[in-house]
């Protein structure tokens, strides 16, 4: 018994030391070469969306009304084509599924467009099943199993759809919130919602239908968070659009630090719009105001 107590004491002490060292050492952002151009050397304009999966990077080149594809190899990237579709004149959010299909939210029609791996138009995402009320997506995300999570601001809910588009879950927004701008799904299948006005993160546990606040109001740490992304070990990244920075939260929603700042030069941000993090910890940020995509190696 005494040995067990001793073991528990030392285990808790080591955990505390790890926790303290973790809290004291927030993640570092090491700059990679930013992406300024497509394969033909034409400049990116006001990009608002970015998604990375495996070694594929897709950019919503919003100002030019197209999607751009890149291949990531270590710290380098190479252009691998552009997609221009009449159904997608103004892409603002983008994600990729396991088959390499691209899903993009069009800001003009406010519909999610499904694009084949070869760049052809496959159709619009239309929720199948018993769905009451109109759907206006503000954002969406695709998880590892190709389920699609849709943030429907018109009917104030989150819709979870399986790969065939069939509704699996419908979770109404909580009463007490400001305005939800984005959502993300972490490694454990939990949905994270970003309240840009209340400056809070809400969480829907895997398979749950309840939305609960994960963080306190982050008013002191963030100006206007517009997008949310999750990284390894449940780290949460908030893209602070008006603060031109990235706010890092722990998996429990606790504030871990703030990275990057406002500026025009490489390594700085101006009104960033969306962020993605690869499995090996490389972050890409759609840097709208700087007309480029910034890449950073995120290290402990």
């Amino acid at each position: 018994m005494r040995n067990a107590l001793k073991y528990m004491f030392f285990a808790s002490m080591s955990l505390a030391v790890v926790a303290v060292s973790h809290a004291a050492e927030p993640l570092k952002f090491k700059m990679m070469a930013p992406i300024y151009v497509d394969g033909k050397g034409a400049g990116i304009k006001q990009p608002e969306g970015v998604s990375c999966r495996g070694n594929a990077l897709v950019v919503a080149d919003t100002g030019n009304g197209r999607l751009l594809r890149y291949t990531i190899a270590g710290d380098n990237w190479t252009p691998s084509g552009e997609i221009v579709l009449p159904q997608l004149p103004f892409p603002i959010r983008v994600d990729v599924n396991s088959k390499g299909e691209i899903f993009a939210l069009d800001g003009k029609s406010r519909r999610i467009v499904r694009v084949g791996a070869s760049g052809d138009f496959l159709g619009y995402v239309v929720p199948a099943g018993d769905v009451q009320g109109a759907v206006v997506p503000r954002s969406f995300r695709i998880d590892r199993n190709d389920n699609l999570y849709l943030l429907d601001v018109y009917s104030a809910r989150v819709l979870v759809m399986d790969p065939s588009g069939k509704i699996q879950r419908e979770i109404p927004f909580p009463k007490d919130h400001g305005f939800f701008s984005d959502l993300s799904v972490d490694e454990g299948g939990n949905i994270l919602l970003l309240d840009s006005v209340g400056k809070r993160v809400f969480r829907i546990a895997k398979n749950s239908r309840e939305i609960a606040p994960l963080s306190e109001s982050l008013k002191e740490d963030v100006y206007f968070p517009a997008a949310i992304a999750t990284g390894r070990q449940g780290t949460i990244f908030l893209v602070d659009q008006n603060g031109s920075g990235i706010v890092i939260l722990g998996p429990d929603g606790s504030f871990r630090g703030r990275r990057l700042s406002m500026g025009w030069k490489d390594g700085f941000l101006r009104y960033p719009a969306q962020m993605c993090v690869t499995e090996n910890g490389t972050a890409f940020i759609a840097d709208r105001g700087n007309n480029r995509v910034d890449g950073f190696v995120v290290t402990e």
Binding site: P89, F90, G107, K108, R110, G133, V136, V153, S155, F179
Partner: peptide, 30 residues
């Protein structure tokens, strides 16, 4: 419900609003 109600009279205005590339998102919420 929502902007569909206002559209009944302000149809031209609503079409102009909804036709913009960038919407002020509260316009299309509940």
């Amino acid at each position: 419900a929502g902007y569909e109600l206002c559209r009944g009279c302000h149809n031209t205005k609503m079409n102009e609003i909804l036709g913009g590339n960038r919407i002020h998102w509260p316009v299309v919420d509940k």
